[in-house]
Design a protein around this nucleic acid. Structure first.
Length: 423
DNA sequence: TCTGGGGTCCTAGGACCC
DNA sequence: TCTGGGGTCCTAGGACCC
């Protein structure tokens, strides 16, 4: 039987904040979303204090700080860099790795003959990452991705354990599944678990025992795969991370509500510029740009979601084209009389940068004339690489984003000025 | 006063084809 | 009065993930 491992960083953002601040060991830590809006990560100690994931910061702030808790605004430059260091170390230890998220990776353990061999490897792996990067990880080993997720989930709950759990023997798997509710299984969210419960399927074991045909008819092939994976049948492979992105989204909530179109325009321009940079960085071009604007679902005022898509006559990655498209889309979905809390720009329908399909007839929209200039964009990207030097007129860099971050830690590993010093 | 951001996959249904 | 069968492609929306 072949095995695979899920390596999962413990309370990742909170652990990152500790790497250069050993004084924070054992202290409760929370990390906040943009605008210090809500809690998006918690250390073990913060969880023990009863701080819930996603809770608005303003609701718990006073009591939490009064009890000696530490809080940080999110510092993605730091988390992203530490993540790539962890992944780099892991990649050096196996032939095949899938980086699944900022704090998780699947490792192919095909070459491990026995589960005790795999377990020892897990322990070694965990020690090395801890020693070289400073981030604690937890490792679940099993025959399938879904079971490996469960193994790491159980390893997390076992206080004082080694942080490594191998779930391989059939009777161990069955015992674990009997103690697991369906909503704790990877791929079963709130909706599916509600529907499963209605059919008297509550535990992982009951789900595993369900008829695959029945699950497929009543639900989908996705859930059928989950059932098969619970039975140790490998349905989800380890993907090397070579597949290109299919969509790019840049969106933010605003610190202050936006009420008129002229205030909104420069913000949408900023998102469009950022999205275009990401697109070129991926070596791709797109055929569609969409703009989304939302009111806040938390106030009692009238709600509105605006969405509009612009189709280009040929693939583009030139910021000027994407800006023009985004502004047209914004004009088409903006409605007066609402106060907007969030906006975003989405790029879709990608093609490889090097391949350009010309149009025989420019029949989509005669009004759109594509500027697309690869050379110009290359120059601008190289000038803006370290620090933005060239802006587009519609951006108004003076107020790039009305975002507040009051408690951000230094960019210890990505900025010379923030390097930690001896004292 | 203050409530995150960025993705993937699948399905149903409509448009269109012969 | 009676109105086929089989297919593809695209999109919107829903589900999930971290």
């Amino acid at each position: 039987m072949t095995l695979l491992a899920l390596v999962d960083c413990d309370n990742f953002y909170a652990s990152c904040e500790r790497v250069f601040r050993p004084d924070l060991r054992k202290k409760p830590i929370v990390v906040l979303s943009n605008n210090d809006g809500c809690v998006i990560a918690r250390s073990k100690e913060a969880k023990a204090m009863g701080i819930k994931m996603g809770v608005p910061w303003f609701q718990i702030k006073r009591a939490y700080l009064a009890q000696g808790g530490e809080a940080f605004s999110s510092n993605f430059a730091l988390y992203g860099d530490l993540s790539s260091r962890v992944m780099h170390v892991l990649a050096g230890m196996v032939n095949n790795i899938e980086v699944y998220s900022i704090d998780e990776a699947f490792l192919d353990l095909q070459h491990m003959q026995t589960s005790s061999h795999a377990y020892e490897f897990g322990i070694y792996c965990r020690n090395i990452v801890r020693q070289w990067v400073g981030i604690p990880v937890r490792i679940g080993i099993a025959p399938t991705k879904t079971l490996a997720k469960i193994a790491s989930h159980i390893a997390k709950q076992r206080a004082g354990g080694t942080g490594v759990l191998c779930l391989n023997e059939q009777h161990h798997i069955e015992r674990a599944l009997k103690n697991l509710s369906v909503h704790e299984i990877w791929g079963v969210g709130r909706n599916l678990s509600r529907r499963l419960n209605a059919l008297n399927i509550y535990s992982g074991y009951e789900l595993m025992q369900s008829d695959t045909r029945f699950i497929r008819d009543k639900f989908s092939v996705v859930l059928e795969r989950t059932v098969r994976e619970l039975r140790s049948e490998q349905c989800l492979q380890i993907h090397r991370n070579t597949e290109p992105k299919k969509q790019i989204i840049v969106s933010r909530s605003f610190g202050k509500k936006i009420v008129d179109l002229e205030q909104m325009r420069p913000l949408v321009s900023n998102f469009a510029v950022r999205a275009s940079e990401k697109l070129r960085n991926e070596g791709q071009k797109c055929l569609q740009v969409s703009v989304l604007i939302f009111t806040s679902p938390f106030n009692n005022q009238a709600q509105y979601r605006g969405f509009h898509t612009i189709q280009f006559p040929s693939p583009v990655s030139d910021t000027r084209d994407i800006l023009a498209g985004a502004q047209t889309a914004l004009s088409n979905c903006f409605k007066r009389g609402y106060s907007y809390a969030k906006a975003g720009v989405i790029l879709n329908q990608f093609s490889k940068h090097s391949i350009t399909q010309g149009l025989l007839f420019n029949e989509i929209d005669q009004c759109i004339h594509v500027k697309q200039d690869d050379k110009l964009m290359q120059y601008i990207d190289s000038m803006n690489e370290k620090q933005a030097q060239i802006y587009y007129a519609s951006q108004s860099p003076g107020h790039l984003l009305p975002i507040t971050k009051s408690m951000t830690s230094p960019r210890y590993t990505t900025n010379w000025l923030d390097l930690p010093t001896a004292n």
